[in-house]
Computed example of a mutant assay.
Amino acid sequence: MDVAIERAVDAEQVRIWAGLQGFVSLAALIALALFFLLATPFSTPESRWSWLGPVNDWLAVIGAVPWIVAMVLLARYVAAGPWMWALTVVACVGAAAIAIVTVCMLAGAAGLQSQAIVSVGATVVAFGWAAFAGGLARDAGLVPGWIATFAVAMVIALVAAGILGVVGFAAGAGSGVQATLYVGAGVVGGLAWLAFPVWWLAVASTVR
C-alpha cells in the first residue's frame, strides 16, 4: 500500500475511534450529571430518575472499548517510543479496570468506594497520557498546537482540584473555608472531567 494512503487510513481510524470515545464518554458524563441533578441520590424514597445512575455505569463499561482502541491507535499513529507505549499500556489497563470494577459493582460484588478509587486513579493516568500523546502528535504535525495545550490544561485543572481538596480536608471539618475549598475542588475537577471527552472529540476533528 502507498505510504500516503496508509497514513490516510491510519488517520481515519484515529478519527473514528477518538470520536466514539468522545461521544460515549460525554454521554456518560451527561447521564451522571442528570443523575445527581434529578435523582437526588442517597436519599429515600428512591427517585424515578435513579435509572440514570446505571446508564452512566453501563456507558462507562461500553466506553472502555473505544477508549482503549483510540489510545492504541493514536500512540501508533504518532510513532510512540517505548516509554510512551509503556504509558499507553498502563492507561489501557486503567480503562479496562474501570469497566471491570463497574461491572462488579453492578453485580453487587464491589462497592461504590472501590469504583471511585479505581476511576480516579485511572483518570489521573489517562490525563497524563493525553498530555504526552497530544505533545507527540503536535510535534509530528498531526494535530494543531492547541490540542496539546488543551491536554496540559486538563492536567493542571485536575491537579488544582486535588490540591484544593487536600487543603480543604486539612482546614478542618465544618469550617466555612473547608466548604469553599471543596466547592472549588468540585467545580475545577468537574470542568477537567468534562474537558476529557471534549479533548477526544477535538482530536477526532483535527487529526490529519
Rank of each mutant, 00 (worst) to 15 (best):
A4R: 11
V9N: 10
V14Y: 00
I16S: 05
A18T: 10
L20P: 08
Q21E: 14
S25N: 12
L26D: 03
I30C: 06
A31L: 13
F36G: 14
F36P: 10
A39P: 11
S43N: 12
S43T: 15
S43A: 13
T44M: 15
P45A: 09
P45Q: 09
S47T: 07
W49H: 11
L52R: 07
G53H: 13
G53M: 11
N56M: 06
A60D: 09
V61T: 06
G63S: 04
A64G: 05
W67D: 12
W67K: 07
A70T: 07
A70W: 04
V72W: 00
V78W: 02
A79E: 08
T88N: 01
V90P: 01
V93P: 04
A97Q: 10
A97G: 08
I98K: 00
V103L: 11
G108Y: 06
L112H: 13
L112Q: 13
I117V: 15
V124H: 08
A126I: 02
A126H: 05
A130M: 04
A131Y: 00
A133Y: 01
L142R: 09
V143A: 05
P144E: 13
P144A: 13
W146M: 05
M154E: 08
V155H: 08
V159S: 07
V159G: 05
G162N: 05
G165W: 07
V166A: 15
V167D: 07
G176T: 15
G176L: 12
Q178R: 14
G184R: 03
G184A: 09
A185E: 08
G186W: 03
W193K: 02
P197W: 02
W199G: 07
W199D: 07
S205W: 13
T206A: 14
